[in-house]
Nucleic acid binder design. Structure first.
Lengths: 141, 141
DNA sequence: TTACGTGCAAACCCTTTGCCTTGTC
DNA sequence: GACAAGGCAAAGGGTTTGCACGTAA
């Protein structure tokens, strides 16, 4: 759990980049507001001075440098599947290299969610578990 | 676990809608290929005869009727957060009404994933858990 | 025959890119 | 002073919408 500012400065310098106010602002937003944010939200919070395109560029930079992570990896658009009225509950194994999505039948979370329901004030209705890694093919390659 | 075709026919008729070949095709795709699919993939698999706009319309219909579900709720664009080098591991509580995202510190899955690692040939690197339901405000409303 | 659904094309929104200017090193 | 980063506007890709035609009921 290192200091993000230091890490960012170093990492940026390490790749011959420059430490700018815009980059500082994007990071500040995330340190201030610890929830997943969209580019637009970051832009709004960073103050209108930041340019949206630059926000996008800096988000990508921070992802490349390992400071940020995309929460529910969108890419290639929204995905749909049959609801659980018509198929069994399952989780997803998602290959980070090729993007393949495999189903993992069953539930690793049943008991945990049940006990959580009594402890949290959020009314949990359903859940989704995504396991990221490398599929057989990509792991071999 | 009812029959999707019957359910769809009934539900469509129930709202004064019509049973069309295009709708049948979209559902067929999901019954044949049990993985999360994008609109484009559905379109491709449904045969070039289907129109992409109609595929989108029918996906939305099937979602409204509860037959399909959006896997990783995109909406309003990709979301980012600090990576786990810079903050603690946590899950997300997502309100299905207002879209608010709360963090739930800790991990409900630790043990399960560890044991899974030895049983599956997918190399799991990280995971993400999203709990959907109603936040305090929306539940009260 | 009556609308509902479809197809097509244009519109929209989020994200990326090109190009010139600004500012860090 | 060099060259990376920012700003702006235009382009790209996914998704939605308006409208006229086709078609299930």
């Amino acid at each position: 759990m290192t200091d993000p500012f230091l890490a960012l400065k170093k990492a940026v310098a390490g790749r011959g980049g420059r430490w700018t106010r815009a980059r500082e602002r994007v990071l500040e937003v995330f340190l201030k507001d610890r929830r997943p944010l969209t580019a637009r939200e970051i832009h709004r919070r960073a103050g209108a001075k930041a340019n949206l395109a630059s926000v996008y560029r800096n988000i990508r930079l921070l992802c490349e440098l390992g400071l940020l992570i995309s929460v529910d990896r969108v890419a290639e658009g929204e995905r749909f599947e049959l609801s659980e009225s018509y198929r069994n509950h399952h989780h997803h194994l998602i290959c980070e290299r090729c993007g393949a999505v495999e189903d993992l039948e069953g539930c690793l979370l049943e008991r945990a969610v049940r006990s959580l329901r009594t402890r949290t004030r959020f009314r949990i209705v359903r859940h989704e578990v995504n396991l990221f890694g490398l599929c057989l093919d990509c792991d071999a390659a």
